[in-house]
């Protein structure tokens, strides 16, 4: 799959826009989901994910082919969501909390039921609860937990995506795990 993306990026760099469509199709759900988990709002998530792909396209010549494309793409998307969170007005934040019911729309378009071999984990109810508990972490911990365990990046790659030292990534992932351990121990 890496090779497929590499080829496509080469074509995009030559100016073939259609090849970028294949890149978007391949990453759309990953990036959308990442934005949704960061922002907790379907509308904002779509806006930011759209913007991330457009920025990737416009800046494609600054992408170094020797590196991993997904790392670069997640970096763009993560920066956009963090900017968005920073710009939120306090009242908007409140609004987002109350409108929780809107999220139900979101749930109806559930992704393919990829069930992990976790023996005790079953049912949408529980999956949703876990998503909610992760979303309660402060963004700087949440982003790392998500990138590590839901997007399966290495700690080194996470340090590149977030542009923070590896040591900081480690400290934060420790704290994130401890926080979630307390939140999920009764599950």
């Amino acid at each position: 799959m890496d090779q497929f993306i590499k080829e496509k990026i080469k074509e995009v760099k030559k100016g073939d826009q259609a090849a970028f469509g294949d890149v978007v199709s391949f990453y759309q759900s990953k990036i959308y989901q990442h934005c949704f988990r960061m922002l907790g709002n379907a509308h904002e998530a779509e806006d930011m994910a759209q913007e991330a792909f457009i920025r990737a396209y416009v800046n494609i010549h600054s992408f170094d082919d020797r590196r991993k494309f997904s790392t670069w793409l997640y970096r763009i998307a993560t920066n956009l969501t963090i900017d968005r969170i920073r710009k939120r007005k306090p009242d908007y934040f409140l609004d987002a909390e109350i409108k929780g019911a809107e999220g139900l729309n979101m749930y109806s378009q559930l992704a393919s039921e990829e069930r992990l071999p976790g023996e005790e984990v079953e049912g949408l109810e529980l999956q949703r609860y876990i998503h909610h508990e992760i979303s309660q972490l402060p963004p700087k911990y949440r982003s790392i937990i998500m990138l590590r365990y839901l997007e399966e990046f290495s700690l080194q790659e996470i340090s590149e995506i977030l542009d923070i030292p590896l040591g900081t990534v480690k400290t934060r992932i420790h704290r994130g795990r401890e926080a979630l351990r307390k939140r999920l121990r009764h599950v």
Binding site: L110, S112, I130, L180, L184
Partner: peptide, 11 residues
């Protein structure tokens, strides 16, 4: 294990 089983969303 629990984190990995969080709900998935598609575009």
């Amino acid at each position: 294990t629990l984190i990995k089983s969080a709900e998935h969303f598609s575009a």
